[in-house]
Nucleic acid binder design. Structure first.
Length: 263
DNA sequence: ATGGCCTTGGCTCAAGGA
């Protein structure tokens, strides 16, 4: 079973690129982030024609997540609220969480807030959101021992995941507070970064800034991840970053990351 | 040192992204 995660930065702008990639790559589930479209306007037909089912949770202009699955998913739900109490209602107002069940596996697709600038209101929101995420995943794990959490985490877990980590403590996506919050929300619950089962060195990136020819110069970050509970970590047999879509005209600034689990 | 580009909305500039 192959599960891909890809922040597409507008599904409508990227529709041809994404459907062509899907035809060539044929993953079982494609988890999209930053779809930037309401559910009514999500372009489902091209995916249905390719034999996929679409589960979407989006809003106008910002955010938005979707699960594109070859097999129908069970018990799809959206946001934190169906799983756990949300003490601060603003944490569930943006469309960033969608979850579904495929056989014995619970899939969670996340778009973690960006955080804007260190110390900003959005940065504070990101840290609060990650605290809420821990409660959400803790509750899910009690029902689903086979848990896979993927998406755009907007955090580089360690210095290997940044082309140049110097001065990182002032850089959003790289501060100790963000790393600690992500570690609390995922690793301390027993979920492990699938990519690191196969690749221990640095220099592997999933996002490159549009500006300053960052892709050409390979000035990237690895911020798109798959986290796996222990039984699924055991079953992981590959995790790869496909840089090809980032090289095409009018790309997303992120490129897909694919994990393969033994069936 | 700074900004560098791309997307959306709705109107040509502002905001958000990372």
């Amino acid at each position: 079973m192959k599960i891909a995660t890809w922040n597409v930065n507008s599904i409508r702008t990227r529709l041809d690129l994404v459907t062509q990639w899907l035809q060539a790559t044929a993953v079982d589930v494609l988890c999209l982030q930053e779809t930037k479209v309401t559910d009514a306007d999500f372009p489902q037909a091209p995916f249905v024609e390719l034999g996929y089912h679409c589960y979407v949770y989006g809003q106008k202009s910002y955010n938005g997540v979707a699960l594109i699955s070859r097999a129908p998913l069970d018990r799809v739900n959206t946001g934190f609220a169906p799983v756990v109490d949300v003490a601060e209602p603003d944490l569930d107002q943006q469309k960033r969480v969608i979850q579904g069940v495929l056989g014995e596996v619970c899939l969670v697709n996340l778009y973690v807030p960006n955080g804007s600038a260190v110390g900003s209101e959005k940065y504070d929101y990101k840290l609060r959101w990650l605290k809420q995420l821990r409660l959400y995943l803790q509750a899910l794990l009690s029902s689903y021992p086979n848990l896979l959490v993927c998406g755009d985490f907007n955090v580089a877990l360690d210095d290997r995941d940044i082309h140049d980590p110097s001065g990182r403590e002032q850089m959003v996506m790289a501060t100790d507070a963000e790393r600690t919050a992500l570690t609390h929300a995922l690793l301390e619950l027993g979920l492990a970064d699938g990519f690191r089962k196969f690749h221990l060195d640095g220099g592997h990136f999933s996002w490159w800034d549009y500006r300053a020819a960052a892709f050409r110069r390979n000035l990237g970050w690895r911020i798109d991840h798959h986290y796996l509970s222990a039984p699924l970590y055991e079953r992981a047999i590959a995790c790869t970053i496909d840089v090809a879509p980032r090289q095409l005209p009018q790309p997303s600034d992120h490129t897909p990351v694919i994990i393969e689990l033994e069936d």
